[in-house]
């Protein structure tokens, strides 16, 4: 169980990025965090990962406060961030350095097979396409078997076909060990396809604005009316989260601005 207790973040330059965020994510649950640009969703994910520490409140995983990167928490970034001096297999096995070589090799081979890249084990990262590189990054994050996997707009740099393919792929990988997934995205479809629960954030300072249950049966049909209903629901919440008539609004009022939430 991952719990956020009154998590807030103020940067040293005075930017108030997050304010009083509270929620819990159960084991095996998939939560998507969506929100306008600059609403602090990446900051929130970094606070959960332990790469940044919250200024107030704390992140608790299984009763233990997360103050720095934790072995039970894996993270996948927007870019693959593969280490160019390691082969694909070396990158996937990066988090298994302290394991015996035989075990490491077996787990790396298994993970590469699972992401469909077993024929690429020996090649350098520079030889991979964008989608392949991100699959290697997913394998690298999953191979230490984290309890919580954080994804920071993991597919946003990919083309639409690759993105849909990798979303399905991620779900099938998730089904193997059922880790908790927390996914930051600005793609509403992606959130509805993947998540059990969708958190909509409101900016300045970043806070949770709305929480939407997406209890659709899996696998989800992107064309179904139920899917569309959830999607509209999220869209409406996003629009409201950015509505310029809010009490702290000093931005210019733009009639079409609400639809440009990203």
């Amino acid at each position: 169980m991952l719990t956020l207790e009154h998590v807030g973040k103020t940067y040293s330059n005075g930017v108030h990025a997050l304010a009083d965020i509270n929620f819990s994510v159960g084991p095996g649950e998939i939560v998507a965090i969506v929100g306008g640009s600059g609403c602090g969703k990446s900051t929130l994910l970094r606070a959960i990962s332990g790469l940044d520490t919250p200024s107030t409140g704390r992140v608790v995983l299984d009763g233990e406060a997360v103050m720095q990167p934790h072995e039970k928490i894996g993270i996948i970034f927007q870019e693959p961030r593969l280490l160019p001096w390691l082969s694909v297999a070396g990158n996937v096995g990066f988090g298994l350095e302290d394991r015996p070589k035989a075990e490491r090799d077996a787990r790396v081979a298994e993970a590469l097979t699972r992401v469909g890249l077993s024929d690429k084990a020996g090649v350098w990262p520079r030889e991979l396409s964008g989608g392949q590189a991100q699959r290697v990054a997913i394998a690298r994050a999953l191979v230490p078997r984290p309890e919580v996997l954080l994804l920071d707009e993991p597919f946003s740099a990919l083309d639409a076909f690759t993105r849909v393919d990798l979303q399905d792929h991620l779900l099938s990988l998730w089904a193997d060990t059922k880790p908790t997934l927390i996914l930051v995205t600005h793609d509403v479809d992606e959130a509805v396809v993947l998540a059990d629960r969708i958190m909509v954030m409101k900016p300045r300072p970043g806070r949770i604005f709305d929480e939407i249950q997406a209890d659709l049966p899996r696998p989800r049909d992107r064309q179904s009316s139920a899917f569309d209903r959830v999607r509209r629901h999220v869209m409406a919440a996003l629009d409201r989260s950015l509505s310029r008539s809010g009490h702290n609004s000093n931005a210019e009022t733009d009639p079409s601005g609400a639809a440009l939430w990203w």
Partner: peptide, 27 residues
């Protein structure tokens, strides 16, 4: 910085960070 962050996410610090991330990166 992004590569160093990968090292941090895998809980490398001190000598391990130098050996596994910084040294190959500056070679």
């Amino acid at each position: 910085r992004k590569i160093v962050e990968v090292g941090r996410a895998f809980r490398l610090s001190g000598f391990k960070m130098v050996r596994r991330i910084l040294l190959p990166a500056v070679l």
